[in-house]
Design a protein around this nucleic acid. Structure first.
Lengths: 121, 121
DNA sequence: CTTCGTTGACTACAGGTGTAATCACTCGGC
DNA sequence: GCCGAGTGATTACACCTGTAGTCAACGAAG
């Protein structure tokens, strides 16, 4: 599976949220902080098409874009990659890491415990 | 904090494992799958120096390199970045994600439960 | 029909990255 | 004193990425 760059990811996010969309609609929905011109968004769309993670269908003289890759699949791949690289493929050290950095609230802990309990049954 | 590229990360890994080391020693210890020449490793070292994540001290006519950035700090930053981007900053969806993909063994679950229990006290 | 806005395609260009080669220097051995 | 191996510095170059500009075609409005 082709890698998706950071900026390209922002475009995918938009389309995972809502699709199909035209290039102009995607541009509207990209977070304003990016400050991208329409041209930039179009470049992203072309590159994502070339990478095969987007599809487009004709709609008159323009295209409607939609993801060709499920968000879950992408997210699973990226998470796995990070955990493999940094934690030798094991999740526990990541949890420990985050805990040590106070990234876990008591509510988070409860939630994860509940999730794990459900998994065991 | 400067970003560290994928290849550069491999060099950091070596130095986090053992330091200080000379360029040649780093090259020896980089995973063989990379198939890097010594020249490539030296380039990486220079760039990492420029980014300020490595230090070097003189040792006669060569340098000894050592990390100027703790592994924990880097790992914390990267993990946080990924979790922010893909899971809205929350860890629970990541755990759920991994669970759904069978990336969690029963042993993992036990381990994390124990960790969380310890955290609560 | 002419004009104008919209659209995809193509081109541009600087900075980062992977992957080196080459150069100049120097120290240890002869 | 000279030579070769090791060393950092400098340079190279293609591909990826962020960020557009431009162009040609086409369809709607007048």
């Amino acid at each position: 599976m082709e890698r998706i760059a950071e900026g390209e990811y922002a475009v995918m996010e938009v389309l995972w949220e809502e699709s199909p969309l035209t290039a102009a609609e995607v541009a509207e929905r990209v977070p304003a902080e990016r400050g991208w011109s329409l041209a930039t968004v179009k470049t992203m769309l072309s590159r994502l098409l070339a990478k095969g993670v987007l599809r487009h269908e004709e709609d008159g003289r323009r295209y409607l874009y939609r993801p060709a890759l499920a968000r879950e699949d992408y997210v699973a791949e990226e998470s796995g990659r990070l955990i493999d690289r940094m934690f030798g493929g094991r999740l526990t050290p990541l949890v420990a890491q985050l805990a040590a950095r106070d990234r876990l609230t008591p509510a988070d802990i409860e939630e994860i415990e509940a999730l794990l309990k459900a998994l065991k049954s």
